[in-house]
Simulated scan of single mutants.
Amino acid sequence: MKWFFKILVLSILLQSFQCTDTNDSSENITSAQLETKKLEIQNYINSFSCSESGGCNYIAFGSKPCGGPRTYLVFSNSVNLNHLQDLVTKYNEIDNLHNIQTNAISDCSVPLPPNEIRCVNGICTIIN
Rank of each mutant, 00 (worst) to 15 (best):
M1I: 03
K2G: 10
K2Y: 07
K2Q: 05
W3S: 14
F4Q: 05
F4R: 06
K6S: 13
I7L: 14
L8G: 01
V9T: 00
V9L: 12
V9Q: 01
S11W: 03
L13T: 02
S16Q: 06
T20E: 15
N23S: 15
D24I: 11
S25H: 08
S25R: 11
S25V: 08
S26V: 12
S26Y: 15
N28K: 14
N28Q: 13
I29D: 09
S31Y: 14
A32Y: 12
T36G: 08
K37V: 00
K38G: 05
L39S: 14
N43G: 06
Y44M: 06
Y44W: 09
N46T: 01
S47K: 08
C50H: 07
S51T: 07
S51C: 01
S51Q: 02
E52D: 10
E52V: 01
C56K: 10
C56A: 07
N57Y: 01
Y58V: 02
A60P: 15
F61I: 04
F61P: 04
S63L: 06
S63Y: 10
K64D: 05
P65E: 05
C66P: 14
G67D: 04
G68A: 10
P69W: 13
R70M: 12
R70G: 06
Y72F: 15
Y72P: 07
F75A: 07
F75L: 07
S76L: 03
N77D: 07
V79E: 08
N80A: 04
N80C: 00
L81K: 15
L81R: 11
N82I: 05
H83Q: 12
H83G: 00
L84C: 03
L84G: 04
Q85P: 02
Q85I: 01
D86S: 15
L87C: 03
T89F: 15
K90W: 01
K90C: 01
K90Q: 05
Y91C: 02
Y91M: 04
E93V: 04
D95H: 09
D95C: 14
N96L: 12
L97T: 01
N99K: 14
N99E: 11
T102N: 13
T102Q: 14
N103H: 13
N103W: 08
N103G: 14
I105M: 12
S106A: 10
D107V: 05
C108M: 13
C108S: 11
S109H: 12
S109K: 14
S109D: 09
V110T: 13
L112H: 03
L112P: 06
P113C: 08
P114C: 06
N115A: 11
N115V: 05
E116I: 01
E116C: 10
E116W: 04
C119V: 00
C119I: 00
V120T: 06
N121D: 03
N121Y: 03
N121S: 13
G122S: 02
G122E: 00
G122W: 03
G122N: 01
C124S: 10
I126Q: 11
I126V: 15
I127T: 02
I127E: 09
I127F: 11
N128G: 02
N128L: 06
